[in-house]
């Protein structure tokens, strides 16, 4: 039996308190801060430059790109590439499908993952190890494309947008991560609620989840990004091209399909005149179009990394 804390209260710190507590911590010396900022600026630049390059390409004419492939600012400005994107109905529709799948899919992912992770955080239930094995094995052994296709066909999911939502409903990796975070919630908090008569579901809903916002945001981000970036499911399990998500369409634009059969040793048979390689600026603009929306989701989620988190310090 866990003893009830003397105060009988658990306290959840709000962000203001966290910050105020942090600020009371020892400050870094000025040179320490300088080094930190310099390193971060360096790392930021290393990743910012490729981004600027893609952005600049998307705003340049494609002739200018072959003359200045390493540009960081646009040469001979043009919005042609974006005009192409917004005037291509398939791109707009597939964008809508991707947004739908990402939102609905992530919600379902979180529902399934959270419940299972919470259940599996109770290591004392009989069969715990068996259940963990059940989760880990699929991470190591993929079943292969053809049997999966046959299964989905029998379930009537081939050619349905729902296959994008359901295939990959629970990721073992995310499940284990979330389970581990649940472990880090002090037991006392849950126990005190149980003593107050809360059921497992109530504890999960009212105590554990509010304490797990950073994890939910993180795992939700992992799932959301996985849905967003997923071209595999759409390509292989959806035959009707009008139901394809953005990534499938995007891939056909940015990948040079002429690479096919060009490897050493065998003569390619592809009819080279048929190959259509999209202009460089369209390829770049497609990349921007398909990454910026999800990129913007992150700063929005970041607030959950500080707010409302922590941790009931059990006063004693």
């Amino acid at each position: 039996m866990v003893t009830k804390p003397e105060t009988g209260e658990t306290e959840i710190l709000r962000s203001s308190q966290v910050t105020s507590q942090r600020s009371r911590l020892e400050r870094n010396p000025w040179w320490g801060d300088t080094i930190i900022y310099l390193v971060l600026v360096f790392l930021g630049l290393v990743t910012l430059l490729p981004m600027l390059n893609v952005l600049a390409r998307s705003l340049s004419s494609s002739a200018a790109i072959s003359a200045n492939p390493l540009m960081l600012v646009p040469y001979s400005w043009t919005l042609d590439a974006y005009q192409y994107i917004f005037e291509t109905p398939v791109l707009m529709r597939s964008f809508g499908i991707t947004v739908f799948v990402t939102v609905v899919g992530t919600a379902l992912n979180l529902l399934f993952t959270t419940t299972a992770a919470y259940g599996l955080s109770k290591t004392y239930i009989p069969g715990y190890r068996f259940l963990m094995w059940l989760v880990i094995i699929p991470m190591l052994f993929g079943a292969g494309l053809i049997p999966t296709y046959l299964l989905l066909k029998n379930l009537g999911l081939i050619n349905s947008v729902w296959v994008l939502v359901i295939y990959g409903l629970v990721s073992p990796f995310n499940l284990i991560l979330m389970r581990n975070f649940f472990w880090s919630i002090p037991n006392e908090i849950e126990e005190s609620a149980r003593i107050d008569g809360a059921s497992d579901l109530q504890v999960l809903w009212h105590i554990v989840l509010p304490l797990s916002k950073p994890v939910l945001a993180t795992i939700g981000l992992f799932y959301g990004v996985a849905h967003w970036n997923d071209f595999f499911t759409g390509l292989f399990f959806i035959t009707d091209s009008s139901k394809w998500p953005l990534q499938v369409v995007m891939r056909s634009i940015i990948i040079d399909q002429s690479m096919l059969g060009m490897g050493g040793g065998t003569a390619p048979t592809a009819d080279l005149q048929k190959l259509v390689i999209s202009a460089d600026n369209i390829r770049a603009a497609t990349i921007i179009f398909s990454t910026v929306p999800i990129l913007l989701a992150y700063p929005f989620l970041q607030r959950y990394f500080v707010k409302g988190i922590i941790l009931g310090a059990v006063k004693g």
Binding site: F112, T113, T115, A116, Y118, G119, L120, K122, I125, P126, L131, L134, V135, I137, P138, F141, A143, G144, I146, P147, T148, L150, L151, I166, Y167, L169, V170, L175, S199, D200, L201, L204
Partner: peptide
């Protein structure tokens, strides 16, 4: 702990159906 199992069950069903059943295909 039946409620705990109930929380895990949907995910178990998902894995059995979507991960284990197609593993029959590993025979190839």
């Amino acid at each position: 702990y039946r409620w705990i199992y109930a929380l895990i069950l949907p995910t178990v069903i998902y894995f059995v159906l979507f991960a284990y059943l197609p593993m029959i295909g590993l025979q190839i």
